[in-house]
Structure formats: structure tokens, C-alpha cells
Amino acid sequence: MSVLIVIPARFASTRYPGKPLVNLKGVNGQEKSLIQRSWEAAMAVSDAPRVVVATDDDRIRTAAESFGAEVVMTSEKCANGTERCAEAYDALGGGFDIVVNLQGDAPLTPSWFVEELVGGLRADPVAEVATPVLRCDGRALNALLGDRREGRVGGTTAVFGQDRKALYFSKEVIPYTGKVFADEDETPVFHHVGVYAYRPSALAAYPRWDAGPLEQLEGLEQLRFLERERPVLCVEVEGRGRQFWELNNPEDVPRIEAMLAEMAVE
């Protein structure tokens, strides 16, 4: 089954304008833009014959082409990454069995997250959409809770049923637990990894649906599928000792740079 990875990126982010072009230092002090680090994460995935950056901004296109990325220009009207992926897929003429949305603010996404996600969708012939979830250790959970205490919108959490179909996604920390966890403790909270795998039929349907109230309240694009009663398969992935975090706010830059240094990423 052929796989296309699309990295949607827009300059006019509400919370962090210009975010794709923010530089992040690696372990040796080398600076690379967020979009380049996200592209390098996508290029490390095995069995992905094509990786494209989808944007509506010439500044991002110029930056992406400078480090060798293929770029697809999309409309400014795309409301989120899923709509941008759908437009990019159409612009490329289709022909792929699975389309992966690796969002441009997730440079710490390990290759096996995407590989296991694609494998999970392939193994479930009924599922049309899948997304990874990572069980939080105490360190990750405490970081999420810290963001909420400080009034920052941090990572997203997910809850799902025994069939691994998503029940809900939220920018609040769910499920609630009043227990205090040490950094190394396993917790019952799952961090939603902002990557999606779609079958083309689901991707084609998505832009035709209006955003529902939950999507608008949470600002989470995947809730459009749940509000239309289209199941989202949650694929649990293993951190293998690596930390995962998205760049949501300017305060996340030093946190991600510390993680890059910890993982010896240049």
C-alpha cells in the first residue's frame, strides 16, 4: 500500500505567527527551522515513497525548497492541517492508499510512530482514520499539568475504548487523576501525538463537513470525525526512552531544544 506523507505548514498561526520558520538548536548548537526538522523526521520514515510540504506561504515554500523539500502550494482558505492535506492530495493527482498528516510543529516525532501508525491502519480494514497515542510518564504528565496551571495551551490528550476507538480528544488533561506521579511513573493519561493516517475516502469527505461545536471549542481538527460519528483508531506507540513534545507556544522552544540535546540530535 503506497503512502504519502504531507507536512502542512502555515505562517499565520493564531497562537504563534511564523512558527514553521522558528529556529531550533540541536545538540551541537546547529540551528534548523521547525519545518526543516519536521521534514527530516518525515524523511526518516521507512516505506514512504513521497514526502511533501503543503503551505500557502511563499516564505515557507522558499525555506523548504532551500533544504530540498518538495512543496505543494495550497489555499489560504484551508482551516486546518487535514483540509490542507486533502487539497495537497488532490493537487498531486491522488493515487496513494494512505495519506499521513505529519504536522509541521512536531519535530520530535520518531520514525516508528509513523510506521506503527500506518501499520495499525493497514491491519484494520474498517478504520478510515488513525492517530498515535503515547502513554505519559510522570514527567510528561507533569509538564502538561504545568502548562494548564500557567494558562498555556499545551499538548492534547486522548481517551479511547477497549476497541481502541477514540472517545474524545481534549486540550485539557483527561482523564482526571488526583494522584501525584514521579517523573518515571507510568500514568493513565495518553498524550495525543499530532499525526494522522487517512484513507483517501475519509480525507475527501472531511472538507465537505462543517466544523462542529466541539471542534470549534477545542480547536482540534480530529473532533470533526467524531462529531460525524466516523471512528478514529488510536494506535498506542512506545517512546523507547525518547521524549515527545510539540511546539505550541514560544515557551516550548527551550523545552524542545533541551530534548534535542538529550537525544543527541544535531
Rank of each mutant, 00 (worst) to 15 (best):
R242F: 09
G119I: 04
A182P: 00
S201K: 07
P8A: 08
L220W: 12
C234K: 15
V118W: 11
V71G: 02
R149E: 14
E262G: 15
V3T: 10
P107E: 10
D58H: 15
R240E: 13
I60E: 02
G219Y: 13
V118T: 02
D90C: 07
A42F: 07
P231C: 07
E115G: 00
G95S: 04
M43E: 11
V53P: 00
F67R: 06
T82L: 12
L145I: 09
D56P: 00
R208E: 11
F113E: 05
F181R: 00
L220K: 07
A182D: 06
S201L: 12
G95A: 06
I98F: 13
Y89Q: 06
M1N: 10
E236Y: 14
T14R: 15
E76L: 13
A64V: 01
E221Q: 12
D252M: 08
R224E: 00
V129D: 10
L92Q: 05
D163Q: 14
W245S: 08
A143Q: 14
R164W: 14
V6I: 14
L203G: 04
E150M: 11
R50Q: 10
L4Y: 04
N101E: 07
R224A: 03
A48D: 00
T156Y: 14
A140D: 04
A12Y: 05
L24I: 01
Y206E: 10
S111R: 10
G239I: 00
R240W: 13
A106I: 12
F160N: 02
L21T: 01
R242V: 03
N249G: 01
H191A: 12
T14A: 13
F169R: 02
A258M: 02
A91F: 06
T156V: 15
R208C: 08
V22Q: 04
G94D: 06
M259F: 08
T187E: 10
T187I: 05
L141P: 00
L220R: 03
N142L: 13
A127I: 12
D90K: 10
G212C: 03
P213A: 07
A130G: 00
R164F: 15
M73G: 01
G119D: 11
